[in-house]
């Protein structure tokens, strides 16, 4: 099966350097301080943020900064293969740790001493780029909750198939086992916060793919920013000038 046709179209009709369509919704859950739904193509992720509030376990509260907790869960129907739910698996621990790492660098934790910020992520449909979608959804939820952050964090994935760097792989393209890179970036500060690369490749290929992923991050950041501004304007319009 060829992943890039001679005309330069991928199996889902995109160009090699084209992101999937992004969609952001806010305030989807009522009980939490901030919530967001992030959709990239078919990949759909919910994120909810509770905080900053008093730490659940008093002994864990840190005296000079906030404690960030992260929970990851994916629905049993999120992938094609029917999978038995096993509770906390290794993959959920790993992904939760990655999202927490990205958020610890983003949230200004020194401004919230002895508080706890808890982020819960639920994957509804996993069609490639799940790590990136989780980080983006968490970022949107944190911004919706009004928690002060150093900068927006935007994540994107990229890969290398048939001697060509491809942006934002979907599940079919990622399942081939080729190089896949996931990058999370602070766009305004231009700093790479999270970087995961898998599968063997030369350093030059890695550099090309990572550069492409960074551009994808910047594009995703732009889209997220627009959605956030739109949401804030609508809230302000309803609330009035109080």
């Amino acid at each position: 099966m060829e992943f890039v046709s001679p005309e330069g179209l991928r199996i889902d009709g995109r160009r090699p350097q084209e992101l999937r369509a992004l969609q952001c919704k806010f305030g989807v859950l009522s009980c939490c301080d901030g919530s967001a739904l992030f959709q990239a193509g078919n990949t759909k992720v919910f994120a909810a943020v509770y905080g900053p509030r008093v730490a659940d376990i008093r002994g864990q509260a840190l005296h000079d900064r906030a404690l960030i907790k992260c929970e990851y869960a994916h629905a049993a129907f999120s992938t094609g293969a029917a999978r038995r739910r096993r509770g906390r698996s290794r993959k959920s621990t790993e992904l939760a740790a990655l999202v927490r790492g990205a958020l610890e660098q983003t949230i200004l934790v020194e401004l919230l001493p002895r508080a706890q910020v808890e982020v819960c992520i639920q994957v509804l449909f996993a069609d490639g780029g799940v790590t990136a979608a989780c980080i983006n959804a968490a970022m949107l939820a944190v911004a919706d909750a009004g928690i002060p952050v150093r900068d927006m964090v935007a994540a994107c994935g990229a890969g290398h198939l048939e001697a060509m760097p491809l942006l934002d792989l979907n599940h079919t393209e990622a399942a081939t086992g080729g190089l896949e890179v996931c990058v999370a970036l602070h766009p305004a500060l231009d700093r790479v916060v999270l970087l995961q690369a898998d599968a063997k490749a030369s350093v030059d290929t890695l550099e090309a793919v990572t550069t492409l992923a960074l551009q994808g991050c910047k594009a995703a950041a732009g889209a997220m920013r627009e959605a956030l501004l739109q949401h804030v304007r609508s809230l302000a319009a309803r609330r009035g000038a109080i």
Binding site: A143, V149, M152, A188, A221, L228, V232, R233
Partner: peptide, 13 residues
Amino acid sequence: YEAFSEDSFVCVG
């Protein structure tokens, strides 16, 4: 809606 000028809203970053 119209009363809010463009630069009175900012996003993170």
